[in-house]
Design a binder for these strands. Structure first.
Lengths: 138, 138
DNA sequence: CCTTGAACCTCTAGTCCCTAGAGGAATTAG
DNA sequence: CTAATTCCTCTAGGGACTAGAGGTTCAAGG
């Protein structure tokens, strides 16, 4: 049986975060030692690693809850898991597209000023004040 | 003089958000009508547009506060504005890089399952449970 | 067996940037 | 003048944690 700190080390999830996951019902309340401390088993390690991995991939906790639910019922069909992963992929792709536009605007803005002027002539401040100078929408 | 709703329309910032910006000191408390409603002028439109644009570009409110402060002192040098914009650019670039790695992993994961299996054989669920299958770190 | 120090416990509050709703007052168009 | 719309303040919530206070339990060394 593992203490919470050991579970934390084995999964890379911080101790308060583990307790938070328990609080919101993502992790089942574990057994306790005689003195009342949490004790975890191998199942908890696997479950928490799953959560960690999905979080790293940008899934929200509600999506993760659905995925875990699905994984707990191996006889159900996994169309939902597929749909969740596809939604996540589309979300990531949309964010990349948006960030790349921002990157372009920021490069333009940074190039407008080398930092050596009085603020009155600063290209950065001008660019922020004037959206019309932007190449596209954001 | 503009009512808060008109200011909202002209800047694209929602009414509660404008009040929130006032509360945190990003926008000066405006004058009031006889009945106590906020009345804004052209300066407020410009300032709020500046804020909106910087938010759209992903700047945090504290960075925006610094930028506005700088813009209010046209005699100061703008090295700080330049530094803030560069920091923001680097931040955006780092996020893009990370999201592109995620995109790759997600594509691999989505390809592992067409949604037509029982959950026990689902490639998506397997991939989430097993980080070692991933191409790179995330 | 006892002591020490690390790790654990609960609880509250804070982060960021808003968003939503309740209950009521002011304004504006007809 | 009335009715509809907008405005006011105040409180609470959300996502996903993070930080801190004040106190308890555990494991290892002597």
């Amino acid at each position: 049986m593992l203490a919470i700190g050991t579970l934390s080390q084995r999964t890379g999830v911080k101790v308060p975060t583990i307790r938070y996951y328990e609080e919101i019902g993502l992790l089942a309340p574990p057994g306790r030692s005689a003195g009342g401390q949490r004790r975890y088993g191998a199942d908890d390690v696997a479950r928490l690693r799953f959560i960690r991995h999905a979080r790293d991939l940008g899934f929200g906790l509600e999506a993760i809850r659905s995925l875990l639910d699905l994984a707990a019922h191996p006889d159900r069909f996994c169309a939902e898991a597929n749909a969740l992963a596809m939604a996540q992929l589309r979300d990531v792709q949309a964010r990349v597209a948006r960030l790349r536009r921002l990157e372009g605007e920021l490069q333009r803005i940074v190039a407008a000023c080398d930092g050596g002027h009085p603020a009155a002539e600063c290209g950065v401040l001008d660019a922020l004040a004037d959206h019309d100078g932007c190449t596209g929408p954001h």
